[in-house]
Amino acid sequence: MGLLSKKDTALITDPLTDNNPITIQVLGICSALAITAELKASLVMGIAVLFVLGVGNVVISLMRNIIPSKIRIIVQLIVVASLVIIVDQVLKAFAYELSKTLSVFVGLIITNCIIMGRFEAFALGNGPWRSFLDGIGNALGYAVILIIVGFFRELLGSGTLFGIPVLGDSIEKTGVYAFGYENNGFMLMPPMALIVVGIIIWVQRSRNKALIED
C-alpha cells in the first residue's frame, strides 16, 4: 500500500459512496442547487471546493491545538474566507480571465456547509495528512454529485453538454427536435436540482438498505 494505509484510503473512498456529503450528510445543498444548470459550472465549482477544502483542512488541523473552543467556528470562518479571498486576488492579478470565471463562485465557496462541516467534524480532531485526505475525499464526493446533477440538468434543460449542442438545434428543429422533442425549461430552475438530488438519494438508498434510517 505504501503511501496510503487502509484507513487512509477509506477517508477518500467513503465520501464517494456511503458517506457522501450531499446525499447522506445533506451538506452543501445550497450550492448544489444553485449552480448545476450547466455541467461546466458544476465542474469548476467541484475543483474550487477541492482546492479550498484540501488546503483549509490542513490549516485548521495544524491550528487545532491552539484554537480556543469558544470561538472555533469564527476562526474556521476566517481561515476559509481569507484563503478564498487571497486566491481570488492573486488570480485577478495574474490570471484575470480565469478569475472572472471563478469570482462568482467565491461567495458560494465561503458559505458552503461542507467546508465548515469538515473543519468542525474532522480537521479539529485529526492530523494534517489525514485531514488533507478527508478534505480531498469529501470534495470529490461533492463534485461527483454536482457533475451528475449538472449533466442531467444541462442535457434535459438546454440540450447541450459543456455548452455543445448534443441533441440537435432546438430552433432549427434538427436532431431529436425534429421528432417533436422539446427542452424542459423547468430543468434549469433550482427546484429541479432538488428533485434530481432526491432521485440520486433514492437510488443510493434502495441499493444499500443499511443507509435507511428508522
Binding site: A34, I35, A37, E38, V44, S103, V104, E154, L188
Partner: peptide, 9 residues
C-alpha cells in the same frame, strides 16, 4: 459581477 452561473451569467 455575480449572476447565477448557467442562468443569469
Amino acid at each position: 459581477k455575480g449572476e447565477t452561473p448557467g442562468l443569469g451569467a
